[in-house]
């Protein structure tokens, strides 16, 4: 069963899956509790514009994607911060504009035959060692930020005005969250592709949110769930010869509905409410 571990590309793919699971478990939890999943989707699709630009100018693709996802997330963040009710329109425009720009740039690139599919649905089996280093570095940055700023991030997410009055630099912190989302999107595009980014961002955290009511535990649980989904998805895609990114999402999606059903059937109240009084983790 473990014969697939003999292949270097498979070991790389598994490692990449585990590393992105940590990143998107933590950042995805912030996305879910702050209801930012459409913004994350917008960032992912706008990143395609960056890929197109990178192709046109013969830049490294990662650099182009990163440039556009950072731009898209900070622009959308600043446009939507004040007028939350207009957020979906803004996100929709940036979403479509990024994609269109990318397609046009690739049209304009002479003699370039681009493998669209690998960006739309990911190519985890072709992850180079350099990307794995980038993912590991991103995990470190994310974990350090969360550990240092956990109480501020909780306050910002729960009650922004109260956080501001308590002396939290809410603007700077909000942009930090947006930047982390953008960086995660870039690495996720490698693994599951830009169309499926939102799924891997939101499904693990949404499952975790069903069973625990504490942000730190949601982060840990969704990182672990992400690892389970990517690793099992990879194995399934290998043995059944399926597209890896789509298989990973299929596993995650099935688990999501199974978790919803399990919660309905077996959990009457939230586990925190049922815990003995006075007990603290």
């Amino acid at each position: 069963m473990f014969d697939i571990l003999h292949y270097e590309f498979m070991r790389n793919a598994l490692l990449a899956g585990v590393l992105v699971s940590i990143a998107c478990g933590v950042v995805g939890s912030l996305v879910v509790v702050n209801r930012l999943s459409s913004l994350a989707g917008g960032v992912a699709h706008a990143a395609y514009g960056g890929l197109g630009l990178a192709v046109f100018f013969r830049w490294p693709l990662l650099a182009g994607a990163m440039l556009f996802s950072l731009l898209a997330s900070t622009i959308m963040g600043s446009l939507t911060a004040k007028k939350k009710e207009r957020a979906d329109t803004t996100v929709g425009v940036v979403w479509a504009l990024g994609m269109a720009f990318g397609i046009l740039m690739i049209d304009l690139t002479k003699g370039y035959f681009v493998d669209l599919m690998s960006y739309l649905f990911g190519s985890i089996l072709a992850v180079p060692g350099q990307s794995i280093l980038f993912m590991a570095g991103l995990d470190v940055v994310i974990l350090v930020s969360i550990v240092l700023l956990y109480k501020e991030l909780v306050a910002l997410s729960y009650d922004e005005e109260f956080a501001l009055i308590s002396g939290v630099p809410v603007r700077a912190l909000y942009y930090l969250v947006l930047i982390l989302i953008a960086l995660c999107v870039v690495v996720l595009i490698r693994v599951v592709g830009l169309i499926l980014v939102i799924a891997l961002f939101t499904i693990p955290a949404s499952i975790a949110e069903l069973f625990t009511r504490k942000l730190s535990r949601i982060m840990v649980a969704s990182s672990i769930l992400g690892m389970v989904f990517t690793v099992s998805g990879l194995f399934l895609s290998y043995y059944f010869n399926l597209t890896s990114g789509a298989t990973i999402i299929l596993v995650a999606g099935v688990c999501y509905f199974a978790a919803l059903a399990a919660k309905r059937l077996f959990v009457k109240k939230s586990p925190d409410a049922a815990a003995p009084q006075g007990a603290r983790p």
Binding site: V154, S157, D159, A163, I165, S166, V168, K214, L215
Partner: peptide, 19 residues
Amino acid sequence: SNKWFPISVIDVTLMGLLS
């Protein structure tokens, strides 16, 4: 405030000590 935010009563109270 975000009513559906996953947070316990004691953690909301602790937020008062943020400053």
